[in-house]
Amino acid sequence: MTDMAVETTTSSEPLPRTKTDWLPLLLVPALALLALPFIGSGSTWVTLTVAGLAMGMMIFLMASGLTLVFGLMDIINFGHGVFISLGAYATLIVLGPLAGWGQADSVWLNLGLLFLCIVVAMAVTGVVGAVFERVIVRPVYGSHLKQILVTMGGLIVAEQAIHAIWGASPIPLQLPQTLRGAFVIGDIVMERYRVVAVCIGLVVFIGMQLLLNRTRIGLLIRAGVENPEMVEALGYRIRRLFVSVFVAGSALAGLGGVMWAFYRQTLTAGMGMEVMVLVFIVIIIGGLGSVGGCFVGSILVALVANYVGFLEPKLALISNILVMALVLIWRPQGLFPVARR
């Protein structure tokens, strides 16, 4: 997925390109087409597919930061879920004073409110992420066992802190007025919020791809994933890069948390940890450290969950595990293996 070609001005010949691995990408449309005859009705299929895409985008938002942090820093953050919960709770900061914007029957005010929620949530989770990195994660670089334990500990403490600040009971959350309901085109029913979620997810994914593949900082990040010592030897402060990626990853989790919270319409401190199970499945499927793999994995898991949930509801519970097992049998390192450690 990572496009390794670098245009150089000095040499006339372009550097050899790494081959793009198309096979996993084809998996998604193949799956969608395969499901069509089983579902039968075309309009149901479109509804399910849109729902699956929306869910996939939200999972991608939550998972992308984690996989990037792992790829770059070789850190597995089991406390990532807390940023999701925190992002979700941060919406309350905005929704408190600006509740009127949500009630108003104006698309722009409603979208503005959503946008403000996202900005505030990302800011809060970014700052907390920086603190988390400094206090919890930094002393345990290099030891996976300690990382898992310590980030789990951070998760416990942070979840309890959310309880202490916002109370332990679930808080209901209302979607802004115009984002409720669904678009109906003929037989096809698409929930409005899901369409918004797909758009936001796509924008973030494209933005990340551009940042990683077309900018200097993206180049440094990709180089850091490949060989951190070499990047450091060339005079770049890889530590600063690490911290900024960690902060960005936390902020993305916060963004995912906002989207997830409006989707569920309830806030609980444990909501992040609940969805973390899906997030882990997705980054394992995608290949630890690969943003593109994470994207494909999210959509794959969400589509399968939606189709199976429609066809055989009992099976939906373990469909994710089945998808993961199949992918790991096919490619033990995930769809797009990145980190060669």
Binding site: I76, H144, I148, M276, V277, F280, L288, I321, L328, Q333
Partner: peptide, 21 residues
């Protein structure tokens, strides 16, 4: 056999997923 073959860190995540399922 599914997860310890690759990396120990997979084991943690996969056990989490299987246990929640």
């Amino acid at each position: 056999l599914l997860s310890l073959r690759v990396r120990a860190i997979f084991f943690s995540m996969i056990t989490l997923a299987v246990a929640s399922a």
